[in-house]
C-alpha cells in the first residue's frame, strides 16, 4: 500500500511543479500549457470523438501488426532451429536487417504501400520481429542434455516432445521477447504515424503541431505513454496469472 503511494508521489510532485511553472507566467502558455488546460483539452478531444478515433486507429494497427509479427518470428525461429542450414543462409541478411531502424524504411514503404494501414503494420512487424525471433531461437535451445535424455528414455514422440519439453523450455525466453517487442512496436508505430499517416496518435500530434495547438500535442504524448504503459502492465499481469505458477522465472 505505502509502496503504491510512494510510486505515485513522483508523478504527483512533477504535476504540481508543472502547474506552478505555468501559473508563474515565466513561460508562455503556448510553449507550456498548464496541466489543467491539458486536462480540459483531453476531455474536449474525447468528447468530440477525435481522440477515440485516433486511439482506435493506432490500436488496430498495433494489434494486427504485432500478431503478424509474433507468428512470423516464431515460425521462422522454429524452422531455423529445426534446419541448421537455413540458419546459415539467413544469418547475414538478418544481421544486416537488424541494424536498419524500421523508420528508415518509411520512404520506401510509402512508395510501395501508400500511407494507410499497410505501411504502419509493416513498420510494426519490422520493429518487433527481431526481439521475438532472437529470443525464440535462444529459448528453443534451452532444452538441456538431461531433459533430452529423459525424453529419449520415455520414448516420447515428436508431438509430445514439442508440447511438453521443447516449447515449455522456450516459454520464458519467448515471453521476454514478446514483451520487449511490444514496446518496440508501439514506439515505432507512433514514429511512423508522425511521418506517414492520416490517422493515429502520431498523426494527432503532428496535426496539432500544424495548428499550433501545444495542448493537443501534450494530450497526444501523454495518451501514447499511458496506453503503452497500460498494455505492458496488462501483458505482465496476464503472464503472471497464466504462467507464473509453472515458470518461476516469470513471476518476478
Amino acid at each position: 500500500m505505502f509502496a503504491r503511494i510512494r510510486a505515485l508521489l513522483t508523478p504527483f510532485l512533477a504535476l504540481l511543479f508543472w502547474q506552478a511553472l505555468a501559473d508563474s507566467g515565466w513561460v508562455s502558455a503556448y510553449l507550456l500549457p498548464a496541466p489543467l488546460t491539458v486536462l480540459d483539452t483531453f476531455f474536449r478531444l474525447y468528447a468530440s470523438g477525435k481522440l477515440t478515433l485516433h486511439v482506435h486507429s493506432s490500436l488496430f494497427r498495433v494489434f494486427w501488426g504485432f500478431t503478424a509479427s509474433c507468428l512470423i518470428a516464431f515460425l521462422l525461429a522454429l524452422l531455423v532451429c529445426r534446419f541448421r542450414p537455413l540458419e546459415e543462409l539467413l544469418t547475414a541478411p538478418l544481421a544486416l536487417l537488424r541494424m536498419i531502424p524500421p523508420l528508415a524504411m518509411v520512404p520506401l514503404l510509402i512508395l510501395w504501400l501508400g500511407i494507410g494501414h499497410a505501411t504502419q503494420i509493416t513498420i510494426i512487424v519490422l520493429a518487433s520481429f527481431f526481439p521475438i525471433f532472437l529470443n525464440s531461437c535462444a529459448g528453443l535451445r534451452r532444452v538441456t542434455a538431461a531433459q533430452r535424455e529423459l525424453a529419449n528414455s520415455l520414448h516420447l514422440g515428436w508431438r509430445r516432445y514439442y508440447r511438453y519439453v521443447l516449447l515449455p523450455a522456450a516459454t520464458p525466453s519467448i515471453v521476454t521477447g514478446v514483451r520487449l517487442a511490444f514496446g518496440y512496436s508501439w514506439r515505432a508505430l507512433i514514429g511512423a504515424e508522425l511521418i506517414a499517416a492520416s490517422s493515429g496518435l502520431g498523426y494527432l500530434i503532428i496535426d496539432a503541431q500544424g495548428m499550433q495547438r501545444t495542448d493537443e500535442v501534450i494530450v497526444g504524448i501523454l495518451t501514447i505513454g499511458l496506453i503503452g504503459w497500460l498494455l505492458d502492465q496488462l501483458f505482465s499481469w496476464a503472464v503472471v496469472r497464466t504462467l507464473g505458477r509453472r515458470f518461476a522465472e516469470l513471476r518476478a
Partner: peptide, 21 residues
C-alpha cells in the same frame, strides 16, 4: 525404464503431467 541420479522431473509440469508422459 530408467531412474536417473537426479529426479529429472520437468519443472513446468505438475506431478500428474510428469507421470502421464
Amino acid at each position: 525404464a530408467v531412474v536417473f541420479q537426479d529426479p529429472r522431473l520437468l519443472p513446468w509440469l505438475t506431478v500428474e503431467e510428469n507421470l502421464a508422459l
